[in-house]
Simulated scan of single mutants.
Amino acid sequence: MQASDLRVALFSGNYNYTRDGPTQALNLLVGHLLAQGAAVRVYAPTTDTPAFAPTGDLVSVPSIAIPGERGEYRLARGLPRATRRDLAHFAPKVLHLSAPDFLGFSAVRWARRRNIPCVASLHTRFETYLRYYHVGVLAPVFVGIQRRFYNRVDRVMPPGESMAAVVRGWGVTTPTSIWSRGIDHDRFRPDRRDLGWRRDLGIGDDEIAIGFLGRLVKEKGLEVFAEVLAELTRRGVPHRVLVVGEGPARAWFEAQAAGAVFAGFQSGDDLGRAVASMDLFFNPSVTETFGNVTLEAMAAGVPVVAARATGAVDLVVPGETGFLVPPRDVAAYADALQRIITDPALRAQMGEAGHRKAAGYRWELVNQKVVDTYLEVMGTG
């Protein structure tokens, strides 16, 4: 069997109604599969105002908005009869599950009754989100749910070795295969840097811009980011802040990061320009499974200061492409940023090293690993 013989049913809690790292990775994977002649059908919640057009055939699954502060995301209610009929008619040979939600559990049960192999990819550390919404006491419950889910599939696909170690620490014994992430090397590159664009935003050529890139949600470490900025100001370290992205916590972050420049949502080559126009990238998030934004900054030749957490530890080489800092250590973050800000030679050296390291991350290579995994679990690899 080869890729063109595959029939893949992909299940996701979000495929295109909100743009984020997981949706971009899944859509690129489907595009890779379709280009190789595979049949793919995607099952996910939808909205009337999607963020972008889906790649491939998307079947809408009934869902409800998640209550609370994250109402932009939706929760599928499982596999209703109409969806099961559609799935049976499609007759998949392998199921790909991207989240341990009601939809994912229902899909596993459906597949197990029919002896259809299942693989599950990891995109979100749900158990780490809870403390940001004042329900951290439930983290062990979420770990238990994930352990039960990933132990029911045939292969788990974490994006890096650090996340694979976390999964094993949960008590998951299912074999793992790494599904890393790629980069658009034409979009994210050092020569996209645009001083004129920075000037239009009010950032001078000689000012050092600390960049934030991503959705403006609290679990991305916004609180720590703001505390570190305050510490740099207290120390008298000259800096500017360039925030690229939108999200429900923008107003809160604007109030905390006084003087920051908010460039809003950027996409395509505009996004590449924004990232390359940063002088260093600061990512204190501890909720990442991979850290797409960190890799994008590295590809653009921007040194990185990040939390020593899953995702970043697989990408950042301490002292070479940036610095890794114990999570929530405000003083240590400030030390690392200050060192890069005040040493232009180090800043250039780290940027060049990061660009070289990012060169090996290519979508066509990492997505082929997923194809190989499908064939292996089907017993034909």
Rank of each mutant, 00 (worst) to 15 (best):
A3M: 12
A3F: 07
S4N: 10
L6R: 00
A9V: 06
F11S: 01
N14K: 00
T23R: 02
T46Y: 01
T46Q: 15
V59P: 03
A65D: 12
I66Y: 12
G68T: 07
G68E: 10
E69V: 05
G71W: 06
A76Q: 08
A99V: 14
D101E: 08
A107Q: 01
R114V: 09
N115F: 08
F126C: 01
V135G: 00
V135M: 08
F142A: 10
G144S: 11
R152S: 15
V153S: 01
V167R: 00
G171F: 09
G182F: 13
D184V: 03
H185Y: 10
D186S: 05
D186A: 11
R192I: 08
D194K: 07
D194Q: 10
W197F: 12
I203W: 07
I203N: 00
I203K: 02
D205S: 11
I210Q: 03
G214M: 02
E219R: 09
F225C: 00
F225W: 14
E227V: 04
V228A: 10
E231V: 11
E231Q: 15
R240G: 12
P248H: 13
V261T: 14
G264A: 11
G268V: 07
D269F: 06
A276L: 11
M278G: 06
D279F: 14
G301I: 08
A309V: 06
V316I: 13
P318Y: 09
F323P: 03
P327G: 05
A331E: 15
A331W: 10
D343E: 14
E352V: 13
A358S: 05
A358G: 07
A359K: 14
G360R: 12
V371L: 13
L375R: 15
V377M: 03
